[in-house]
């Protein structure tokens, strides 16, 4: 846990943070609004006291209620991993600016998050499905996309519908709705 990173982040980003800087073990987490994302990442990348040059990961998260995008960065200036969470994206129309202008290498990761969660990255010039076929219509990693045997987890369940060759998007009456406060 790098306490000085917390003070540095609070000083540089100030009102762009939507919550307190959280620290646990070797990770520091900040939360920002989608509109501020590019500016925040540019500050983190360019500021000589921060210099987060390596983009470790871009991913989407479905908390069950809303969607998030999560970025992990590395810098030589701190022993911590930095996690940036953009939360509160509405399920119906999740939109977040693309970071391909800063890290062009995020293009495929953003395509993957679009494929799996339906998050639209505005500014990504190649936002099409990457794993699933082009005519696919649902978003498999969303929490309302239930696997065929999810009902086994509910009361009265226990039978695996192996003969059912597709994954029902709506879930069954026994499927459990999972949410998390993330």
């Amino acid at each position: 846990m790098d306490r000085t990173l917390k003070t540095r982040l609070e000083a540089k980003l100030a009102d762009r943070l939507t919550g307190p800087v959280r620290q646990r073990q070797d990770q520091t987490e900040i939360r920002v609004r989608p509109a501020d994302l590019i500016e925040v990442l540019r500050t983190l990348h360019d500021d000589p006291q921060l210099e987060f040059t390596i983009l470790a990961d871009v991913c989407g998260v479905d908390t069950g209620d809303t969607l998030q995008t999560v970025y992990h960065l590395w810098s030589d200036e701190t022993p911590d991993w930095l996690r940036i969470v953009v939360d509160g994206l509405p399920r119906e129309d999740p939109r977040v600016p693309s970071i391909t202008s800063l890290w062009p290498g995020a293009e495929w990761s953003e395509r993957e998050a679009y494929d799996m969660f339906g998050i639209v990255f505005e500014g990504n010039r190649d936002l099409r499905r990457i794993y699933m076929p082009p005519d696919y219509t649902s978003y498999p990693l969303r929490k309302d996309f239930h696997l065929p045997d999810d009902s086994a987890r509910g009361p009265g369940g226990g039978v695996r519908h192996i003969e059912q060759p597709y994954a029902p998007v709506a879930g069954t009456e026994h499927s459990i709705r999972r949410t998390v406060k993330a």
């Binding site: 470790a56 991913c59 990761s109």
Partner: peptide, 21 residues
């Protein structure tokens, strides 16, 4: 990247693979 919701299964399990990049 793992998110736990307190059950015996992870709520979100993200894999970052270098070859993909």
């Amino acid at each position: 990247y793992v998110i736990s919701d307190g059950t015996d299964q992870p709520f979100r399990f993200r894999v970052h693979d270098p070859s993909f990049v």
